Simulated scan of single mutants.
Amino acid sequence: MPTDHQSIVLSAAVPESLLGKRLDQALAEMFPDYSRSRLKEWILAGNVQINGSVCDKPREKIFGEEQIDIQAQLEVQESHVAQDIELNIVYEDEHILVINKPADLVVHPGAGNASGTVLNALLNHAPQVASVPRAGIVHRLDKDTTGLMVVAKTVPAQTHLVERLQAREISREYEAVACGTLVAGGLIDAPIGRHPTKRTSMAIRESGKPAATHYRVKQKFRAHTHLRLKLESGRTHQIRVHMSHLKYPLVGDALYGGRPRLPKACSQEMIDMLRGFKRQALHAIQLELAHPITNEWMSWQAPLPDDMVALLQVLKADTELHGMADD
């Protein structure tokens, strides 16, 4: 796999406040633009000098006022090609990029999707992201989930965004249409892991990673519910798995919802809409975060896509015709 490299040169004197700290701990505080794991790799690789001498021991004690010099290389992967794929850019500066992802667009190349992804589009739009792990992608949306995603254009921006995501300091809100009528909102707190037999699916599992989803009812229809949801964690397929676990799967979710649920005496228009809705009705509608470099609090919203607007209109008309009860 052909690669290129970006040189990193860092120099600083150790402040007295870090007296007695381990080298890896001190570097993490001195150079917060880089992750602890990356700094430790550089120490072990002999890329770190203390007062001119190489130190490859992460646990080396620091006494304060030492001169630290780091000379390292960031590997730039050339395995993914840049492709001229249009991106709906909501916001961009020299550090980050926020996009409104359409349906039917995979975020990262993988099995069956070697190209034609958000990553390929990013390499074309901002070639510098080739030197950022995962081309700056901080969090993903499923192929057929629409809405807002933030991308880091530099390694420091990505380091800070990943840390804030892990600390649950990035707010991500979604809207969805679920099958069935929920009476009230609530919290789903159930761990998610890989399905034991279906390798492309996730499932509620005791051995899974913690996952929490808040949801509230925006509008109730005769046999469906328009929801607003907020993630505390960001597990693969989290909202889809959690709503299916509640027995209120998302409209159009063939993986976790099965066949379309048709209420009694519904119109042909509604039958066509529900059968023809070929993706999960899920949209990342709002994203809020502190800018990774300036720390300014920022907020973006992406209106519901046309297919979900049309779905809600049909559900509203059905409810007005038949009333709330599906008898």
Rank of each mutant, 00 (worst) to 15 (best):
H195F: 09
Y174N: 15
L187S: 14
E206Y: 02
G185C: 13
V129K: 03
A130Y: 03
H195W: 12
H214L: 11
V129P: 00
D142N: 05
S171D: 14
P133Q: 06
P156C: 05
T200S: 06
V155D: 07
R205D: 01
G147Q: 04
V155R: 06
H139T: 09
A135T: 03
H214W: 15
V132K: 00
G185Y: 11
A167K: 15
C179L: 06
K198V: 13
M149W: 07
K209M: 15
A212S: 14
M202F: 14
G208N: 05
H214E: 15
R199S: 11
R216I: 02
E206C: 04
V132M: 14
L187D: 08
S171Y: 09
T145L: 09
E163P: 09
M149H: 08
D142F: 10
E163N: 12
Q128H: 03
L148C: 05
A203M: 06
V150A: 00
A157Q: 14
A126W: 01
P191G: 06
T146S: 12
R168W: 15
R205F: 02
T181I: 07
A178N: 10
T159V: 01
R194K: 10
E173Y: 11
P210A: 10
A212I: 14
I137W: 01
Y215P: 09
L161A: 10
I170G: 12
K198I: 14
I188N: 14
T181H: 01
R216V: 06
P210W: 04
V138G: 02
P210E: 11
V162A: 15
A178T: 10
H139F: 05
P191E: 11
T159E: 05
R168Y: 06
I137A: 10
P133K: 07
L148A: 06
A184F: 09
P196D: 15
R194F: 04
T154W: 06
A152V: 08
R216A: 11
H160Q: 08
K153R: 05
A176Q: 08
P156Q: 05
G147M: 14
D144T: 03
R140G: 02
T159K: 11
G208E: 04
S171H: 15
I204V: 12
T154E: 00
P196L: 07
G186T: 14
L141Y: 01
A190G: 05
R164N: 14
A211C: 15
P196Q: 08
L165G: 12
A167C: 11
V151F: 00
E163I: 09
T213F: 14
M149R: 04
A152R: 07
Q166R: 15
M149T: 04
R205G: 09
R134C: 06
G193N: 07
G185I: 10
Y174G: 03
E206W: 02
H160P: 10
M149L: 11
P191K: 03
G136P: 00
P191Y: 08
L161R: 03
M202L: 03
A178E: 01
L161P: 00
G147R: 03
G180I: 13
Q128W: 02
V150Y: 03
I188Y: 11
V129Q: 00
V138K: 07
L148I: 04
A211D: 05
